[in-house]
Nucleic acid binder design. Structure first.
Length: 574
RNA sequence: GUCCUGGUAGCUCAGCUGGAUAGAGCAACGCCCUUCUAAGGCGUCGGUCAAGCGUUCGAAUCGCUUCCGGGACACCA
């Protein structure tokens, strides 16, 4: 258990012993460091509840505190300030130095499916996909760290209009292909296309279909035929999905995103008939389509119905999401399903979630949650585009960063090693920037700023770690402990590290990673200050030297583990 | 039009389950290398928290109104 949590439980005990029945006592970093490292504001809420003077309440609490706290003092109307004694700090960190899990608190285990990634088959990944992947992957790892059982599903966009588009384009390239011959009964040949070919075919078809209504009609029809199970169409489309999946997987690998389930919308088809059966009592016809009302009596905002079947009889993305939900519940019986998509889909997900509960598809005690995220914008504040106005694909984005990153690597590192470091550093830079702002905030993509060695950037973090690792290596020892707390810069770092339990808890509650990144920066910048002012290896006093090395190791362990949560890899030198 | 979001330092953003004097980074200016990676560190400058009203012992934080930006509103995902 973390020191903070343990102390909070103790404080709660003290307060309850005084006869105050409250739920919790929070120990938070003091806003006025001159009075102590931490503060407790519980006297105010007690005073309100029991109609007492907050200052008097504080005095009663303070009189009961044991020697784990020092410098206990009351300020203002009843703010209690205090610090931990040196012994408490030393004992705690000397254990935690080799046991990272002592620094935070596990939570009640729940089984959670995380739906993130969401790449579209046969289209290249773009900036929006990166955010879903980065946030989802990090949240998945965070939940696991906190003791949850988590299943990550990429939920590939492997069905929809793009299928019809690509098949219609293929038909124009190979009009006599057996895939389009309904009387053909033999084995289908392997198609000879690369994901690059698909990337060219899609926009071509899309443009043509937008200009020519009969082409669009053909696209719709092919899409419907695939769903209905047309043998040739299904085989051809599956091959295309396979081809593009391979390249999508490579990009996700690069981003350190690894999925437990590599499933997609097509995997929901087999559940759709049952979904429709379950929803039947709630469906009605509207403008030729089948829809489900999702309004509630106490709604004070409009809530349009969810469309389930289009007027041509085919499924729509909502149908497939509902099918996916049914499949997940039957196969995995999760406590929760979490979705990470663009915030613009929030109304849609609210409809799906409401429909799931209303129709009884999902039991009330299974929690469905949608976590939206903001868009990545260019310097003009509008969604990030290439110079010619197209959507920025992920590969170009990575190379924009890599161009900047090259400048940060020492000249003497050459060849393959340099290339590898540049790659790792580029991804780290991209990910650090992507997770730095609050999940729901839009942010402006600025390769130069993100790649800087100063500030809250990937390069700053990794560079700081490179120095620590180099230092530890040169120390020629591994048996460190914190003995001497006379150096204030040392205790400042330690006190900061204590906050980690709160940081992780808050990150979980808000499903956002910016608190963790902010914390990483805070710890490292305090440590760097220490590093700058003290020469660790040349320290004459053995107790101090040992303490300094212990601090360095501890900082390394903490940051290393947090970067692992963020799915950011380190480099050994740069 | 309705609903959802956001408006905090010159720029980019934290802070928002109400707590003491609103914080970072960048930029600008000044300082610190015979020192473990100075690719770093320190300091200075910079704010009517969009505006107004309300709730409260206490409001950037909660509520209402107004102004400005972004987004969503069924046969795309």
């Amino acid at each position: 258990m973390s020191l903070i949590k343990e102390s909070e439980e103790y404080l709660l005990h003290v307060v309850k012993d005084l006869g105050y029945d409250i739920e919790k006592v929070e120990l938070v970093p003091s806003g006025r460091k001159e009075f102590g490292d931490f503060q407790i504001n519980v006297a105010f809420s007690i005073a309100k509840l029991y109609h007492e003077n907050p200052r008097a309440v504080s005095e009663k609490i303070v009189s009961r505190l044991d020697s784990r706290f020092i410098n206990v003092n009351i300020q203002g109307a009843g703010f209690i300030n205090l610090s931990f004694s040196d012994d408490v700090i030393k004992n705690y960190f000397n254990k935690a130095i080799d046991h990272f899990d002592m620094l935070y608190d596990k939570m009640d285990s729940r089984k959670i499916i995380i739906d993130y990634g969401g790449a579209n088959a046969a289209k290249s990944l773009h900036v929006g996909h990166m955010r879903s992947a980065n946030i989802g992957e990090a949240v998945k790892r965070l939940l696991r760290l906190l003791g949850m059982e988590v299943i990550g599903d990429v939920h590939l966009g492997d069905f929809g209009r793009q299928a019809g588009m690509l098949l219609s384009e293929y038909k124009r390239m190979y009009p006599n292909s057996v895939f389009f011959d309904s009387s053909y009964e033999g084995e289908y040949p392997k198609i000879d296309l690369t994901d690059k070919d698909l990337g060219i075919m899609y926009p071509k078809a899309s443009l043509a279909a937008n200009e020519d209504p009969s082409r669009m009609e053909e696209v719709r029809n092919i899409t419907l035929q695939i769903e209905k199970g047309n043998r040739g169409f299904v085989n051809l489309w599956n091959q295309m999905v396979e081809i593009s999946s391979e390249s999508i997987k490579k990009v996700y690998d690069k981003l350190n995103c690894h999925f437990d389930l590599w499933e997609g919308e097509m995997d929901s088809f087999k559940y759709i008939p049952r979904v429709l059966e379950i929803m039947k009592p709630y469906l009605y016809e509207s403008e030729g389509a089948l829809v489900c009302d999702v309004m509630k009596e106490d709604d004070n905002k409009p809530m349009p119905p969810l469309m389930v079947i289009k007027k041509d009889g085919s499924s729509i993305y909502g149908t497939r999401d509902l099918g996916t939900i049914l499949g997940r519940i039957e196969r995995f019986n999760p406590d929760e399903i979490w979705y990470f998509t663009d915030e613009r889909q929030s109304l849609y997900f609210e409809q799906v979630i409401r429909a799931s509960y209303k129709t009884g598809l999902v039991n009330e005690n299974v929690k469905l949650k949608h976590f939206g995220f903001g868009t990545i914008n260019g310097s003009d504040g509008k969604p990030f585009k290439t110079r010619d106005g197209k959507v920025m694909d992920l590969a170009s984005l990575i190379s924009l960063i890599k161009d900047e990153i090259e400048k940060n690597i020492k000249d003497e590192i050459k060849g393959d090693e340099r290339e590898k470091i540049a790659d790792t550093l580029s991804i780290a830079t991209l990910k650090y920037a992507d997770l730095l702002s609050f999940r729901k905030t839009d942010y402006i993509f600025n390769p130069k700023e993100f790649s800087s060695l100063n500030g809250k950037t990937g390069p700053y973090v990794l560079y700081s770690l490179v120095r620590i690792k180099s230092l530890l290596k040169k120390s020629n020892s591994d048996n460190y402990s914190i003995i001497d707390l006379s150096n204030k810069e040392v205790s400042e770092v330690l006190i900061k590290i204590l906050e980690i339990s709160k940081i992780l808890e808050r990150s979980y509650l808000d499903a956002t990673l910016n608190y963790i990144e902010e914390f990483i920066y805070d710890v490292l910048s305090l440590y760097n200050k220490f590093y700058n002012d003290n020469n660790v290896l040349n320290e004459k006093d053995e107790n101090k030297k040992n303490t300094y090395l212990a601090l360095s190791k501890l900082v390394y362990q903490v940051i290393h583990n947090l970067l692992d949560v963020l799915a950011i890899n380190e480099v050994e030198k740069m």
